[in-house]
Design a protein around this nucleic acid. Structure first.
Lengths: 207, 207
DNA sequence: AAGATAATGTGACATTTGTAATAAATGTGA
DNA sequence: TCACATTTATTACAAATGTCACATTATCTT
């Protein structure tokens, strides 16, 4: 497993290198000190995982991550931070970062790294606690008057996000035909005429 | 590391057991087949990590997780699923589940397990892709940004009332084809794909 | 296990919608 | 008037949508 470590603080960076290389099957291919170096190192080594501090002078780890992911959406980037800031977490998630850990517990970095390497996403304990607060509340509309099932409601909400039948099918693991049937039923029940009216109705009801 | 595995499907459950025990330092203390068993097994063994299918007859994995976490908020529960449903992910997160994986890639279960064991949270690839969509975000559509004429705006607002092309044509004394052209242009300018997306954007922007 | 019930899927079909190329009508300024 | 842009219309076409009747599959009940 080829790793590149990037940290502002030279001490931390080399400490990380040492810790990581203690793990079997781990090679630290490069060590950098700021965002732009990160970019270069990534291009040069194409590491399996990029371990990067988020707060760095010059170019921040977040920006560097954004850059790298733009060049290579498959890049696996694990961000390290000393404190957990919602703003950062959200951005990092949107960019497609594969993990977000607190620097505190060094022992948990290695397992996290391996999990990330298999394509999974890992969040540190403190980060996880914050996650639920960041989640959108599902818009609940009272369709009680009609008898709308949970699944139908789900379909409606996806229609109201502008998804096509095919996309909804993919999202819910149904066939496109089934989605059409669902919508047809819903329209029948609600007396609406097409998906656009459904979306409008749904969004207007959610106020 | 002491694990309890719970899966509806006996074959899968034993397969998991085998896979896990191949890992060093892993003991599968118990194997169960549904939610209520999960609860008992957890009480009995207090495993380091609980690996549980989400879709099971009788009591679902999600419910079981909720129960267990109510009794022991420190419980580390890793849910397995064959499909990823936003609804479930959100709920699982709120309950405090420590991970959410797809059954597909068995090889990645072990690393995930270890990461969870250190207190981190792990999401499978497919799940991660869905996460950003679940995050709260500010909606902003700036119609000024595109050069939308008065007439076009009128068309948009009618679309957002759920009118068909024919109806809009009648309303604005245009031919149906012209309305279609209008909408086609608008979609082109805005980068949207169809009238439903247009309606959704319009309504969301009006907040 | 058998039957009922619900959920999901299929295929055929008509309709609506979106795209594109092109043209007629309209207005506007030099 | 001419040239030019704008608005509106027409046509043909491809794609998505909605409806319906009917299989197929799961799930629950008994």
């Amino acid at each position: 497993m080829k790793i590149v470590v990037v940290d502002d603080d030279v001490l931390v960076a080399s400490a990380l290198k040492t810790i990581l290389e203690a793990g079997e099957d781990v090679t630290v291919a490069g060590v950098g000190g700021d965002g732009s170096e990160a970019l270069e190192l990534y291009r040069q080594y194409k590491p399996d995982v990029m371990l990067m501090d988020i707060r760095m002078k010059n170019m921040s780890g977040l920006e560097a991550a954004q850059q790298i992911l733009k060049e290579d959406p498959e890049a696996k980037i694990l961000l390290l931070t000393t404190f957990s800031d919602d703003e950062y977490i959200v951005k990092a998630l949107k960019y497609g970062v594969k993990g977000y850990l607190l620097k505190q517990d060094y022992t948990s970095i290695l397992p996290a790294l391996k999990a990330v390497c298999t394509g999974q996403t890992v969040f540190g304990t403190e980060i996880t606690v914050r996650l639920p607060g960041l989640i959108k509340e599902e818009k609940r509309v009272d369709w009680k008057e009609y008898e709308i099932s949970e699944k139908e409601l789900k379909v409606i909400s996806l229609v109201a996000e502008g998804l096509s039948n095919k996309e909804i099918a993919g999202e819910l693991f149904l066939s496109e035909g089934t989605v059409r049937n669902y919508i047809s039923n819903i329209l029948d029940k609600t007396g609406l005429r097409d998906r656009t009216q459904l979306a409008v109705h749904y969004l207007n009801a959610a106020r």
